[in-house]
Design a protein around this nucleic acid. Structure first.
Length: 616
DNA sequence: AATTAAGGTA
């Protein structure tokens, strides 16, 4: 743009002409415009410079340091400009040289009065203790009943871990709006006060889709998936329809439970309402299909996406990994690279998990080196953990131990736990004892390592050591996590615990279970009493095994399906070897495909075999 | 001249 002679009378004309037809869209455009502004002698003209600051400070393609330079050149910046900078500070991820409190001091020192656009972004840019000073300033300046200021004040206290202070503000105000209520519900949930969140939710004077989603998401984040789905059902019963946020929230609840039917129902609603699959929703949907055992459906959704973000690739690679389809995971990784995708540490973690679960040791080693060589990435603790798991499971215990010694960081309990798990699989008691004790000391409240160590001793017949581990657990008040299995049938979730008798169809289920056991025994199944470590008689051990929650769930599944059908079960812990054997027999004898999700991965049982090839 | 509450992957 060329400007020749500009007289004061023609100036406004030129200025607004530019303004209307040449919106700033890049930093280089902004620089050009800035030089024009300088030549026009407008560098101190607040409304003009404000436009520049706004773009530089807030646009994703902006440059905050440039905005600050422009600001410092202004002799008398106005409230709008300060507010714009507060907004920028509140949305900037990294801490800057300019703190919100210094900027506010500057503003007050220059006698610029805050207005009702000042405090909301300022509160979001700060935390305690400065937040308290803002609180009193808001009162002094008379903004305490301004809903935007108050709502952001609540947010500030809640995000600073002070729900009590938020409560004081909240309950002192008689005219809280729906945003304030919803903010409190979210804040309580995030503070772990899920019951208080629900109590607030139940007493809200009005609710909208955002409030419903906040409460449902609170349950999901607390791991209370069943409660999340129940609340969603209530929401739908009131005729409220989903949007993409609620869709994503509820899908992740389905994922947590392995509730495929419900997940499919949500997918159908998303389609019928023509909700666009943005990257978050798509990732959630793919993850739901992966973790509910429907890998083919996940692939279908994945392939239907016109553009794939890194998170989407990661999710799909992870899906192949947990289903034991290591080769497919690697192939997908290669496809991603060939399409110009750049992997991150999660991508590599998923590739390594895929290798570990599919006994692809050479490939795993290759990708572990490759992430360093090709992408210059530093393997994190999790990557080492995965390598230790992979090597250990494959029986390469010495290599696994060596890797732990060579790691640049101190191994944490997860790393040692992975090696302990390998010792358990391969019956290596001495190393397992040493590693197990260290793992337990590092993370004494995790029950899993005690159980693993006790089982390792039990396998070697070292009952005194078993008793010692159990006593240690008892003394520390650590309890073995109770196992349970879930199976969804006609939209109803059925939960079974070991030896449980509370199901309405209890009698039928136990009859079926006994019939099932008789038939598979006739086909050669023998109970593996070695996995039960209590000091019981052989009969008692078998009893305990026979009524494991997954066997109850399978019996229930057999009642409600026919030959050729698929039974899907979600278990919260790892499946035991005995149940794994029994399930193989059931798949053949009763001609069912049984898809079992355990804590770590999927097992697809078909015609007497499992997809994990007994490697898990 | 402009603000606030809700979602996913590891």
């Amino acid at each position: 743009m060329v400007v020749n002679v500009v007289t004061s009378s023609s100036f406004n004309h030129h200025h607004y002409h530019y303004h209307n037809h040449n919106a700033i869209s890049t930093m280089s455009g902004l620089r050009q415009y800035h030089s024009l502004v300088v030549r026009l002698g407008l560098s101190s003209h607040n409304p003009t410079v404000a436009r520049l600051i706004k773009f530089a400070a807030l646009s994703p393609s902006g440059d905050l340091s440039y905005a600050l330079r422009l600001f410092r050149l202004l002799p008398c910046p106005d409230a709008f400009i300060y507010n714009t900078l507060f907004l920028a500070l509140s949305s900037h991820p990294t801490p800057l040289s300019l703190s919100p409190s210094r900027l506010l001091s500057h503003m007050l020192h220059h006698s610029v009065s805050p207005n009702h656009f000042t405090f909301p972004p300022l509160l979001r840019a700060t935390s305690l203790p400065f937040g308290r000073q803002l609180h009193s300033l808001i009162y002094k300046l008379g903004f305490s009943s301004h809903s935007f200021a108050r709502n952001n004040l609540l947010c500030m206290y809640l995000q600073s871990g002070c729900p009590y202070d938020a409560c004081k503000v909240f309950y002192a105000s008689l005219d809280c709006d729906i945003v304030a209520w919803t903010t409190m519900v979210t804040g309580f949930s995030k503070a772990g006060l899920i019951d208080d969140a629900r109590a607030l939710f139940d007493t809200m004077p009005e609710r909208n889709l955002v409030s419903w989603n906040a409460m449902i998401a609170g349950y999901v984040q607390a791991g209370l998936f069943k409660e999340a789905l129940d609340l969603f059902d209530q929401m739908q019963a009131q005729g409220i329809e989903i949007n993409k946020y609620v869709g994503a929230t509820v899908l992740s609840a389905c994922t947590g439970l392995g509730a495929l039917e419900k997940g499919e129902f949500i997918h159908t609603q998303i389609q019928s309402k023509r909700i666009k699959l943005d990257s978050k929703l798509a990732t959630t949907l793919i993850d739901m299909y992966c973790k509910c055992g429907c890998l083919e459906k996940a692939i279908e959704v994945f392939n239907s996406l016109p553009a794939k973000k890194l998170s989407t690739w990661n999710c799909m690679i992870g899906g192949f990994a947990i289903h034991g389809r290591g080769i497919d995971a690697i192939q997908l990784f290669k496809n991603m690279e060939s399409q110009g995708g750049v992997p991150d540490d999660i991508t590599f973690l998923n590739v390594l998990i895929a290798c570990a679960h599919s006994r692809l040791v050479a490939e795993g080693k290759h990708y572990f080196d490759y992430m360093v060589q090709k992408y210059n990435m530093e393997p994190k603790m999790e990557h080492y953990g995965c390598m230790v798991d992979m090597l250990g499971r494959a029986g390469l215990l010495k290599e696994a131990k060596q890797l732990i010694l060579e790691m640049p960081m101190e191994p944490n309990a997860d790393i040692l736990g992975a090696l302990l798990g390998a010792c358990k699989i391969h019956g290596v008691v001495d190393l397992g004892q040493e590693i197990g004790k260290r793992a337990i000391e590092l993370d004494p409240l995790n029950s899993g390592r005690y159980v693993l160590l006790a089982n390792l001793f039990a396998g070697a017949g070292r009952w005194d050591d078993v008793a010692e581990v159990r006593k240690l657990m008892g003394d520390r008040g650590v309890h073995k996590e109770a196992g349970h299995s879930l199976i969804e049938m006609n939209g109803v979730l059925n939960k079974f615990i070991c030896g449980g008798r509370s199901h309405p169809q209890c009698k039928e289920i136990y009859n079926m279970l006994n019939e099932m056991l008789e038939r598979i025994k006739a086909e050669g199944y023998v109970a593996d009493a070695g996995v039960v470590t209590h000091d019981l008689t052989k009969e008692q051990k078998e009893e305990a095994l026979y009524y494991h929650s997954e066997k109850l769930a399978i019996a229930f599944g057999l009642i409600h399906t026919r030959a050729g059908d698929t039974i899907r079960i979600t278990k919260n812990l790892r499946v035991c070897r005995d149940c794994h054997e029994a399930t193989k027999f059931v798949s053949r004898v009763f001609d069912r495909e049984i898809i079992l999700r355990d804590r770590n991965r999927f097992h697809h049982f078909k015609r007497g075999d499992c997809s994990c090839k007994d490697y898990w």
